[in-house]
Each structure stands twice: as C-alpha cells, then as structure tokens.
Design a protein around this nucleic acid. Sequence first.
RNA 1: GGGCGAUUAGCUCAGUUGGUUCAGAGCACCUGCCUUACAAGCAGGGGGUCGUAGGUUCGAAUCCUACAUCGCCCACCA
Length: 877
Amino acid sequence: MEISKVYDPAASESKWYQYWLDHQFFKSVPDEREPYTIVIPPPNVTGVLHMGHMLNNTIQDILVRKARMEGKNACWVPGVDHASIATEAKVVQKLRKEGIKKSDLSREDFLAHAWEWKNKHGGIILEQLKKLGASCDWDRETFTMDPEYSRSVIDTFIDLHKKGLIYRGKRMVNWDPSAKTAVSDEEVIHKEVNSSLYHVRYQIAGTTDEWVTIATTRPETILGDTAICVNPKDERYTHLHGKKAIVPLVNREIPIIADEYVDMEFGTGCLKVTPAHDVNDYDLGVKHNLEVIDVLNEDGTMSGAATLYIGEDRFDVRKKIAADLKASGHLVKQEPYNNKVGYSERTDVPIEPRISLQWFVKMQDFSKPALEHVMNDDVQFWPPKFKNSYRNWMENVKDWCISRQLWWGHRIPAFYYGPGENDFVIAVNEIEALQMARNNSGLDLQAADLRQDEDVLDTWFSSWLWPISVFNGFYNKEEVDYYYPTNDLVTAPEIMFFWVARMIIAGYEYRGEKPFKNVYYTGIVRDQQGRKMSKSLGNSPDPIELMKVYGADGVRAGMLFSSPAGNDLLFDEALCEQGRNFSNKIWNALRLVKSWEPEERSQPEVAALAIEWMDNRFSQVIEEISDHYSKFRMSDMLMTCYKFAWNDFCSWYLEAVKPAYGERIDHDTLAKVTAHFEKLLKLLHPILPFITEEMWHLLAERKTPAEALVVAPWPQANAVDHDFTEGFNRATDAITQLRNIRKQNNIPNKEPIEVYLRGDADSDVRFYPLFSRLVNVSAVHRNVDMPAQAFTFVTGAAEYAVPFGDTVDAEGQVDKIKEELIYTKGFLQSVQKKLSNERFAQNAPEKVLEIERKKESDAIAKIALLQEKLSAMGVIF
RNA sequence: GGGCGAUUAGCUCAGUUGGUUCAGAGCACCUGCCUUACAAGCAGGGGGUCGUAGGUUCGAAUCCUACAUCGCCCACCA
C-alpha cells in the first residue's frame, strides 16, 4: 500500500472524529466496570475557544482517553454555563446595536431575546472542542439553565433557606455601576492606580475662622458625609470632641466623633465619614448611629440626595468638586497618591461600595467540611502548594452574596406579599408561595398580591452543583451513585474559590461525599513576554487557525511541551511546530515499516537483539509514563513518550532491524516490529489521538470497529532484564564513540572499520552484532594485543581501539590521551582524599564507601590503561 | 500590610528522603551530511562556580539564616 509522504491532518481528523462518534466510543452508561469520570469546567455559553481552554481540555481528554483504554467506563461530561453577567452584557450590547434599550423591554421580552441569542450563538465552543478531539459523551451535554438543572438550583436555595443558611440583609456590597448589579468579593480585582489625595478643610460650626482638615481620595462623596472622625488619643483634636463641622458647598452640620479606628499618622489624622460609600465608614456609622446619605445612583451618577451635580457621573464630579472646593477656599492641597481601587472583573469599571438589600449564604460553619477534606487530602490538590491559599481563604471565609440585579439566570424564589422587610416566603412556585403567604399573613391574598424577587442568583450558585446536577443527581440516584464522586477536575487556580471550594462544600452538603478525588490546577497561558493571553491585548492566537496549520495533534502536543502542573505556560507557536514535527516523525516511521517486504529467511542476530531490547524498553517506559500520569506530570509524560519514540524506537530500534538496502525482511522480525509499533501507538494515542488512529488502521487491517485504537487495551509492563538493557546501553555508548571517531577523522560510513577491545564483560560479546549494523564495523578483535597506532577510548573498564588508516593525525591522539590522563589523575586524587578522611570513613554509610572505592579502583585501572597506551605509542609522559 | 512560591545552560524547565542514575532534558546554537522513512530530517558537538552572602555537615543545587530579584494569593487604611 502506498502511504502519502506527508500526513494530512485535516482529512484524517474529521474522518476519525466522525468514526468515533458513529460507533459511540465516547458514550457512557453505568455498568459493572469501574467508572472514570470527569466533568468539564463549563465554559461560558458566550465563550469562544481560547488557549486556556485548549490546555485545559487537552489535559482532560488525555486523562479520559487513557482511562478508556485501561478498560474503565470513561465518562467525560460536557456542558456550558449560563454566565449571567457576561451573557446579559452581551445581549444588552447586541440589542443596543439594534437600537433597543434593555430598560424599554419587559423582563419576559428581554429573556426571549436572550434565549434566542443563546440558541443561535451559544455553545460554539463545544463545536470547537470537537475539533480538538475532545472525547466527551455528547449525549450528556448540560446547560446550567436546563429545566432539571434549574430545578436543582432553586431547590437548593429553598433547602438552604430552610436550614437557616440563606438570609436576606442590608449590607454593604460591591456594586458594579456598569452592569448595575452587586458582585461578590471574588469578582472584585484590586488595582493600583494613580490618584490624588485631597486635603479639604471644614469649618467648625459656631466659629468664624476655625477649621478642621481631612484627607480624602474621593471628594465627590463629601456630599454624603455625616461625621468627621478623629482618634480619641489624638491631642491635636481633643478640643473638637462633641463639636460640629460644616460640610463645604452644602453647608450641612455634622458631628465630630472620636474612634480608635482612625489612624493618627495618615493624612491629617481626621477622617470624613461617609457611611453610604465606604465599608469602614459604614461600620463606623452603625457604631455611632450616624445618618446615611446615599449620594450615588445605581449607575454611578450623583443622586438627588447629593443636592449638587445631580445626574452627573462620579468621576466628572470628582474633578468639578475639586475645582469648586478650590474656588470656595476649602481645598487646602491636592497631592499625587497611589492607592488600590477595586474593579469589576466583568466590566472593568471601579466598584462602588453600596448599601443594599441582598441575599447571602452563611459560610462560616457551612464551609468547614470542605476545608478539612482538602487539608487531609480526601480531595487532593495538584500541585499541593495550592492547599495553602485554599486554607487561607477558607479560614477567613465571608458570607457569600448570591443575588444579582440581572434578568438572565435563576430567579430568586422569594415572593413578597407585604411592605415589611420580612413579608416574604420562599417557595418553588407561585401556587405554593400563595399558600404559604396566606398562612404567614393570615390574609386572603390573591396571586396578584404576590411579587417575586426581581433578582437572579449568582452564576456560581448554580455551577457549584455541577458534579451532581449533570447527573440529575438531586432527583435520580442511579447515575449519580455510579459516577459520583468524579475522579479528576482540571481547572485554573483563578477559580479555586469561586468554584472548586464551593463544589466541595455542596458535595459534602448534598452527597455527604467529595465531588472529585483530584484537582489538577493548570497554569495560565501567557505569551512570550509573559503577558496573560487575552482578547483585549490581541496576543492570543486563534486555536482553530493553529490547528489548521499544525494539526490538532500538533497543537495538543504543543500545549503540553511546556506545562508543568500549576506553572504558567509561556506559549510559543514553535512548540506546536515541534508537535507537528513529531507527528511527521512517527508518520515516516510507519512509511518505513510498511515498505518492508517479508520473505522466508532467518532472523539476523542484530534484529533479535534489538527486539529483546525494545521489549525491555517498553516495560521501562510504561512504568515511567504511569508514574507521571499518577502525579499529573503531563509535560514529563509527553517528553518520555517523545524521546522514547524518537530516539529509542526510530533512531536505534528501527535502524537496527532495518534490512540492508535491497534486501527483504524476515517474517518474525516484521511481526515483532509491527507489534511494537502498535504498542507505541497506544502509548501515544491519548496525546495524538488522530494521527495514531490513522496509523493504527494503516499498520494492520482492523476488521471491526471494536478493534479501533481508541478502545484498544492499554499496554502492561513486564519484568525488566536489567543486565541486558545495561549491556545494550554500553554497546550504544561505544557506537556513539565510534561514530565520533569516524566523523572527526573523516572516515566515510561506507568504509568498514575494525575494532580492538579488551576489558569488557564476557556477556557483552553478544552485543557485537550491533557494531556491524550501526557503525559498519567489519571485525571485532577481543583480548588480543592492542594496536599501537590507533584511535582509542575507554568506557567503564573496556578499552576500544580503531587502528589508524593511512593518513592520520597521531599527534592529536596523543594529546587527547594526555588530557584524559591528567583529568583521571586529578579525579583519583579527589577520591583518595575523600577516602583518607577519617571522618568520612567513619560517618558515611557503607554503600557510599563502596561506591567511592569502586571509583578509586576504576580510576587506577584507567590510568594504567592510558599510560600503557602512551608508551605503546612511544610517548613518555 | 499579611501569606505562599520561585531563582539551575541562550530559552522553557526536571532534579523525589543531602552521597555515581548530580549537574540533566527539550528547544535554540555550532559542525558535517539532500546516506531512497523523515531537511518537519540524519550524525556529531559546545555551553551552567545551580540568585548573593554566611552557616550546619566528612560531604550541599538539595538543610538553616539573612539579603536581592521576580511572581501569585489575600487584605477596608481614608
């Protein structure tokens, strides 16, 4: 059969992916086998494939494919997340382009648009994952707003509320003025910014020219000041206690209070207190019973309560008010200042602390089991260093704000029936709510009297149920009992708190069991300059384009070449090229083997040797790979495969068994080589699924789909004959040296050489056939007089000599031997010095002493050999 | 401000309990080869006082201390 000279990924990839789908190799149903389960970290429904997904899903696919080949019931559940903020923003944007404002739409109409958008554009990413080769069970595709999934979210809310773990309260929350919603602490990113520190003086009430100066970075909130605060120990201000100050511009009188909270060192030692717009000020306000004046609207403009600048944006007002304060003589000075400001992760606008009525989950006790089970490794983190920050967070966990002022998501099942803050019921639907409301209130309420909470739940309040709800585990035990707990979770450390921690919490709460055994944290994919790849920087290559150029297999390998667990990955397209080259290498190995025509003839010795060596090497490599897998060292796993395939399999093994030019191969050897090649393809399949499946079918005829590589049994390691492999290695070392002699002396490969040697082990004689095959040695003379005029080298205890030909630089040889002699003498000296050290002799373990003595005797022997050599060449040294 | 981690070849990184599997790998680089599987290749080669300074030890890339540089996470100093 003619095999094309170059592997064509495009044709092969679509062909085999369809083949795998057609024969349902990715499908999983519970059976008697051991399950192996991964749930995908659901990408945003709005998402498109980026390099982070590539890394993440390549790793998951490798794990799943290996488990499948190991005979486990492998199940990889795909799906997408409704991502309320991101999706709603996207839909709002799209509507705006069409000239429709969200505020002009009813909730129902908006949601209709959102669903339309979701059905049309959502989940592109899943189609892209198929290109990558992701072997997900697509029949299990889940969306976090599927009916059953939604039901589990609402039921969970109801359950936790019953348990007293969910409450509604007026709190200071992180307000995103762009998305006009509260966001959780985890969604706030603190950035260092250059701003100004404004020193503003307030007149003391009842005086004509007495002032107190405060320092602030946010002068626009002056309009909401309800106190000035000083430290009670601060003697500079003792005289002000109990007095009042006048807020500039609005001339409102506010009390001057004293509290330890104020840092006397900072600024002027006087703090303006704005309870509505700062967390600390809020706490102070509660403590000192201060008035709360909210001067900002939900979109970040000044509210009516501000009385000035109404409707203008907070940042415009900051500039204006500074100017106005200056004009009125209140601005004492303005100095540059660096501080940290919280930004919204989603919209990247500065977060506004804002008091509002929100829903919270009490986390303190609720999260305890999740901390314990990670610390004792019931849930194992890879790499384990992440346990530290996990503990840090979990020990200081705060209540989780779960309400969002959005429409896209799971609507909070709270129904209000009266004006009071507690006039509500939590119910699964309106009918039940009405019944409960009637009971609670004792009134004859009608459906129209009920008003459901306008807010939806934080997206993570649904994704934390993912490992349970993808199996419909709240309502049907069969599947969840089989697949849960899942095995490995592969995700980014960035969402350890958002998602991982909360899944563990939910897992123990609702299953009494961990959601997964291992969490593998991948690094962040960065560009060559170490910058995180992002759309806005435009430094992220399009994965789909990369796959077109290098093939999906090439890109998969490229992602893995540099991704140690938990370390960031500096992505370089050259790595994909390396992956592509690797594909090409094994492809050509196939072409070579397929070109061999067998015939009846005896097996050459060299082939028998190489085959035995390959058998042993496979066992070693399988062990090594298995160790890497067990520790999630994917990069090392790939590198082991890479070096084994390239160096051992192609460079040594195939070269050794390759029939001489024009000759045919014997049947036994071809059969063994084919079997070895199959084994190699199995080891490579999880990494390079497409090309290996293609080659698998080219290598031999496969009669039924059940014989496809994707479900072929994973190879097992056998006992290794170390004497044999070490002897073989000595022979290949010698071959390298002999090749070097050829090269340095321009002895062409076609010209046979003769080798003299002595001092090697008797058992190594069996490897001599390798010399003739691999460096064209025509004869090996053992234990005879060594030729005086020769190139020599010594490995271990064996001395090799290749007699000079006609034209040779004998001088150079002598220098080389001298150099080695000097080095060896120095080495001997250091060893002997160590051995003669009494304290070393007394303290070092016997094993180490033995090694040192062996070094000594080897060195002495080598020196003798070299000196003999020199005198034979007529040199006195 | 608190915590965690890192620093080994030009680059990206291995180096498991201190001792011949300790100074390694891949890429890049240099030299010679278009040798009919593969130039996306073959064969060979050079390259590091293991961040700095001390300490412990018979012995330190490995353990301890300080310092320097970088990164990450957490945190309400206006």
